[in-house]
Amino acid sequence: MSVKIEDLLKNRPVFINVGVRAFGDSLREAGHEVVQLDWSPPAGGDTRLAALLDDLL
């Protein structure tokens, strides 16, 4: 087993929470370190607008 994987198993994990903040909050309340990454689906999840944006952005 590589040293890096051993470190991962021995140490406490740091979580990256993508999107909905509440999921990260419950991990934080359980004592874990959480890094929040704000993300939401393009155009708020509207597939018609997202398709338009594919050609423009």
Partner: peptide
């Protein structure tokens, strides 16, 4: 307007 719609 593209960024406004993309980021909602």
């Amino acid at each position: 307007i593209r960024k406004v719609v993309h980021a909602n």
